[in-house]
Nucleic acid binder design. Sequence first.
DNA 1: CATATAACTCTGAACTACAGAGTTAATCCA
DNA 2: TGGATTAACTCTGTAGTTCAGAGTTATATG
Lengths: 110, 110
Amino acid sequence: MEALDPLLHQPLRTQLAAFLAGAGEASFSELKRSLDVSDGNLESHLKKLIAADYVSLQRSEGPGRAQTRYSMTPTGLAALQRYIQALHKLLPIGAEGLAGAGHLAGNTGS
Amino acid sequence: MEALDPLLHQPLRTQLAAFLAGAGEASFSELKRSLDVSDGNLESHLKKLIAADYVSLQRSEGPGRAQTRYSMTPTGLAALQRYIQALHKLLPIGAEGLAGAGHLAGNTGS
DNA sequence: CATATAACTCTGAACTACAGAGTTAATCCA
DNA sequence: TGGATTAACTCTGTAGTTCAGAGTTATATG
């Protein structure tokens, strides 16, 4: 059976990776606002993704308040793609697979 | 942002739910073999799914070795469908979304 | 009847997730 | 100028989760 990358298969990190992949890059606060998560929690999950080289950071220079921008690395994007493919294999995604399975089905909502 | 059911968004439980949804039902040993997991681990994850009424069990009667068959409940199937839809919204599934994102892309492997 | 084995269940250790307190440094207003 | 405020992190301890393997029960088998 297909294994799911445990680094990506966690609610907050899946969202984090998906958001960064979609947005290109984001600041700490943007991520915090978008994912509605506490500072500490965001930090610890970002750290894991950074440690795995899935996410990279770039500190802004110049005037104004210091700010770090986070983005997916090529490694991270590749892992995300592999992860999505694993989900595809595992789940009957996009094929109404559950409704059509036969057993127990038929009550799948209006 | 779309929340992912934490009960389903865990490697082993996603596989468990997907397997049961696909197979209709399975015994403890079949699950153990298919998912390649230790007894204790399988038990504890099954317990969570049962506690949430995502999975039901039916003990076999009659002669022969007792055996419990596990299957998804309607509640579980509905949750799985919602989960899959949440994944859809979150991830650029099936749309080559990552490769086309622009930033950082272009190295997405030949 | 003794041994083996399938089918679970329990327990505790290791790891993960999380919130909030703490830190640093830039901006604001008098 | 300088004290207060706030944004942007970072650290730490607690609570919760995951996991393997030891333990249990009951059936089959020599």
